[in-house]
Computed example of a mutant assay.
Amino acid sequence: MVDRRPAERDLDTASVRIPAGSMGAVRFQVIGKVDGVPRVVLDHVTRTAEDQVPEWPTPPEGGGCYRVVITGEPSLRCDLVHHAEHGDHNVSGMIVTAQRLVNAVPAVVAAPGGLVTALDLPLVTGTGLVSTVSTGSSDGAA
Rank of each mutant, 00 (worst) to 15 (best):
V37Y: 02
A111T: 06
A111H: 14
N90C: 02
V45F: 05
D139P: 10
A111M: 09
V69W: 01
P54R: 10
P106W: 13
D10K: 02
V37C: 06
V45W: 03
S22Q: 07
G136E: 12
L115P: 12
G63P: 09
P6L: 03
R4E: 09
A98L: 13
G128Y: 07
A25M: 05
V102D: 08
G140A: 12
A98W: 06
D35F: 01
V2Y: 01
T135S: 15
L115T: 14
P106D: 13
T58I: 12
V105T: 15
T48Q: 04
R17N: 04
I70G: 14
V69A: 14
S134R: 13
P74Q: 04
G128I: 08
T71L: 14
L76I: 13
G93P: 03
G72Q: 07
Q99H: 09
D139F: 09
R77C: 10
T46W: 09
P122T: 02
D35S: 10
P112R: 10
E8R: 09
L115Q: 12
D12P: 00
S22G: 04
T13S: 05
I95N: 02
L123N: 02
I18R: 01
L115I: 12
V109Q: 12
A142R: 15
V34N: 10
S22I: 03
C65K: 03
R9S: 07
E50Q: 12
F28C: 10
S131V: 09
Y66V: 08
D12E: 08
P59Y: 07
P60I: 14
P112Y: 03
A98T: 09
P74S: 05
S131G: 10
G72H: 03
V37I: 13
R77S: 15
V30G: 05
S15G: 00
A111G: 11
V130I: 06
C78I: 13
V124I: 15
G93E: 12
P59V: 08
G126C: 03
R17K: 05
P54L: 11
V68F: 11
L119Q: 12
V108P: 13
R4P: 00
A7W: 02
Q29L: 10
E55S: 14
N103M: 13
C78W: 04
D12Y: 00
N103F: 13
L76S: 08
G63E: 13
P59Q: 08
V53P: 06
A7N: 02
R4K: 01
L121F: 09
P59C: 15
A104N: 12
P74H: 05
R27S: 12
V16H: 05
I18C: 01
T132A: 15
E85Q: 02
N90K: 04
V133H: 11
A84V: 01
E73C: 00
V102T: 15
R5D: 03
H89I: 00
E8M: 06
R27V: 08
S138E: 15
R77P: 00
P122D: 05
E8L: 10
E55C: 01
H82R: 01
L123Q: 11
L115V: 14
A20E: 06
D88H: 04
R47K: 11
T71H: 09
V69F: 04
G64D: 07
M23A: 07
A14T: 04
Q29V: 05
I18T: 06
A104C: 14
R47D: 05
P112K: 11
P19V: 04
P59L: 08
S75C: 07
G113M: 11
L119D: 15
G24C: 03
E61V: 15
R77Y: 00
V116W: 06
Q99C: 12
A84F: 01
V37P: 00
